[in-house]
Simulated assay, not measured.
Amino acid sequence: MHQPIGIFDSGFGGLTVFKSIIEQLPDYDYIYIGDNARAPYGNRSFNTIHQYTWECVQWLFEQGCPLVILACNTASAKALRTIQQQDLKITDPAKRVLGVIRSTAEVIGDYTKTKEIGVLGTKGTVQSGSYLMEIQHFFPDIKVYQQACPLWVPLIENGEYNQPGADYFVKLYLDQVMEQSPNIDTILLACTHYPLIQEKIEANLPAHVKVVAQGDIVAKSLVDYLQRHPEMETKLSKNGTSEFYTTTDDTADFDHHASMFFSAPVKSTFISANDLVKC
């Protein structure tokens, strides 16, 4: 039986996480869906983000996925808790949906020596306060300074991040977070899009500041989860396949941009957002 791991993101960013997951767990089957037609999620309301995320999760369930990873910080911040505590109990308690915030918060404290961290994310992720709460839970002695970067995802999604004009906005938000405390020695990229501009970010920060992306962290957390939950691991099919879906009808454009995020050729299939609503 075909029972892949589902990977969801509002657009392209989750592909940076998917890349790390497939490097560490290459034998499994995967289905990725990017809700590009309705992206970006960062500035949308809690209810809208939950609705869109849950529609995509249900669609992945219908494709046979017993386990779905929300490879999206905004969805993890604003939809995951409701999905886990309410939606799954009504639909199918045996299925599982995991996010990227908790797995990151569990280890981010290990990166800092000054115990002061800057968190860069979308407006939705920052406003949710999810990282503040989760990091406080695991590392109560660490100070967290947040900074919303609302223009980064549009620049990245539209392929403008390598243009000279993008440098201004990269520096703008970095200056704002570093102004909050001179003791910040670790910057967490709390959006899966941001690894595409990681080199620009590092170039605009003091040399001693470490920049942490989430891909490898989330992948290692998934490996650990499957080891601890053999009842889920044994359900998953292992043929080494990957399927890509997008809600934009311009699949050629999706494939072009997705290949940059995934660092490998991508061939996608269109799934209408209207069809997701019917799930």
Rank of each mutant, 00 (worst) to 15 (best):
L174Y: 13
K19W: 02
Q163M: 12
V144D: 03
V211C: 03
N43T: 14
V68N: 08
F254P: 02
D35K: 11
A39I: 02
E160Q: 13
K267R: 10
T251D: 03
S259I: 12
Q147Y: 04
V17W: 03
I187A: 11
T186L: 00
E233N: 15
F46T: 12
Y168G: 01
T104S: 15
Q227P: 01
V144K: 03
V266S: 10
G240P: 11
F138I: 06
V266Y: 07
G118P: 11
S10P: 12
G13C: 09
A39R: 02
L67K: 10
W54R: 09
F8Q: 12
K235W: 13
W152N: 09
E106L: 06
P66T: 10
N43I: 08
P230A: 14
Q3S: 15
A148S: 14
I5R: 10
E116D: 12
S76E: 08
M260A: 07
L25C: 07
S76Y: 10
H256K: 10
C65H: 07
T251E: 02
W152H: 09
T241C: 01
S45A: 09
A75M: 09
K220R: 15
V209F: 06
S76R: 04
D250G: 00
G6K: 04
Y161R: 00
L80M: 10
K235E: 09
W152S: 04
K171V: 05
S242T: 11
Q51G: 01
H208T: 06
F138D: 03
R96Y: 00
T248L: 00
Q180S: 05
C56L: 03
Y131H: 12
A75K: 08
S242H: 01
V170S: 02
Y245E: 04
V170E: 10
V100W: 01
I142F: 05
A77H: 12
G13V: 09
N162I: 00
Y41P: 10
V97A: 02
T114I: 03
A273C: 02
K278L: 14
I83V: 13
P150S: 07
P93Y: 01
M260G: 00
C72I: 12
H2M: 13
I135F: 02
S242G: 00
L196C: 01
T104N: 13
I187S: 08
E62Q: 14
L172F: 13
E23I: 00
I197D: 04
P140L: 08
I69M: 15
S181C: 02
F244A: 09
S263Q: 15
D92A: 05
K19I: 00
E116L: 02
C56G: 15
K267L: 12
Q214E: 14
A273H: 11
L67Y: 10
D87E: 14
S103H: 01
M1C: 08
H2K: 13
A252L: 08
F169N: 06
P140Q: 12
P4I: 09
Q3R: 15
I101E: 07
D87L: 01
S76I: 10
K78A: 05
K267V: 14
Q180F: 05
G109F: 04
I69E: 05
S76G: 05
K278Q: 15
S103P: 14
S221P: 09
G42A: 11
V126G: 10
Q146L: 05
I21Y: 04
D35L: 04
Y52D: 02
V57Q: 08
L174D: 14
F261A: 05
Q85F: 03
A37C: 03
V211K: 05
G13P: 05
E55D: 13
Q198P: 01
G11H: 13
Q63D: 09
